[in-house]
């Protein structure tokens, strides 16, 4: 077959752009045209024009909802299987903390605060208290750190992970990469012994919670692209985005940390993109 002469009254590029948009060009011409697009803004404009011009026909494409299984399959394909790893060993429920009411916890907090005051010779190793809350208050945890045993005790007083997600706790020391402290149990209290790098002075330790797929952050590694700033699974908690409202920040990191001895400490931004 031979190509007919080009239609005399339709400029060549415009015609090519239309045929390109309709996927009518033979493969070699298609590839040639695509290569030109990279370098020629005017040609890209022609393509955009034809795309918009023909888009009116798109209304004839019907709405047909795909099976819900398709979305789950997509998620698995893109973000990995959801039951890859659980790390319950890192965080075990602490019986003592289960069933404590919020009131008694608040009391424990006050006591801990007092214990954190300048230690008398008889005072045991200091306890530190911190709250971890989401900006929208949809999640609220109380964290108590015993510097004597390096044990961090967490009690969730409010909030839960979105369906199909779990909450993962991260410790961030100074400018270092976040260290996973494991997945929080669905409710109640838990404790974790801080790994060596996070011990010592905890006044610059930031605790963050992200919601991640069941089994923890894909890859399990707090560095790398999985945790690159802005990825959705860095989200501390559920967002309360309102339709039509301002765009939600894709992640909201920590939150509040109360330092026992330096109440005027400025809050930091542990997930500042510049840090990653």
């Amino acid at each position: 077959m031979t190509d007919p002469p080009l239609s005399p009254d339709l400029p060549d590029d415009r015609q090519l752009a239309a045929e390109y948009v309709l996927r009518l060009l033979p493969p070699d011409q298609h590839a040639t045209f695509e290569a030109r697009l990279e370098a020629e803004p005017a040609l890209r404009a022609q393509v955009a024009e034809w795309t918009t011009r023909l888009a009116g026909m798109n209304a004839e494409f019907p709405d047909i909802a795909p099976r819900t299984a398709v979305k789950s399959a997509l998620r698995t394909r893109m973000f990995g299987t959801e039951a890859r790893r659980r790390r319950p060993s890192l965080l075990q429920r602490l019986g003592l903390w289960q069933g404590l009411s919020f009131a008694s916890l608040a009391l424990a907090g006050v006591m801990a605060w007092q214990l954190a005051q300048p230690p008398a010779p008889t005072t045991p190793a200091p306890l530190y208290v911190s709250e971890i809350t989401a900006e929208d208050q949809s999640l609220w945890l109380l964290a108590v750190y015993d510097s004597g045993t390096a044990e961090l005790r967490l009690t969730r007083t409010d909030g839960s992970a979105p369906a199909g997600r779990v909450l993962e706790l991260w410790g961030i020391k100074g400018d270092n990469a976040p260290v996973s402290l494991g997945v929080l149990p669905d409710a109640g209290a838990s404790s974790v012994v801080l790994p060596d790098p996070l011990r010592g002075s905890v006044t610059d330790l930031v605790l963050a919670i992200t919601d991640v797929p069941l089994g923890g952050a894909p890859g399990g590694n707090p560095t790398g692209s999985v945790l690159a700033v802005g990825h959705g699974d860095r989200t501390v908690t559920r967002h309360t985005t309102k339709k039509g409202g301002p765009a939600a920040h894709p992640f909201e990191c920590l939150i509040k940390r109360r330092r026992p001895r330096t109440p005027a400490a400025a809050p930091r931004a542990p997930c500042d993109p510049a840090r990653h």
């Binding site: 494409f61 019907p62 047909i64 979305k71 690159a228 990825h231 959705g232 699974d233 989200t235 894709p250």
Partner: peptide
Amino acid sequence: RIALGDRNAFSALHDATSAKLFGTCLR
């Protein structure tokens, strides 16, 4: 937001647009 890696936005976009795109594929 998806351009920033927001998976929640991705999920929302899927829910909002998959019927149209699936209808397109099926056609």
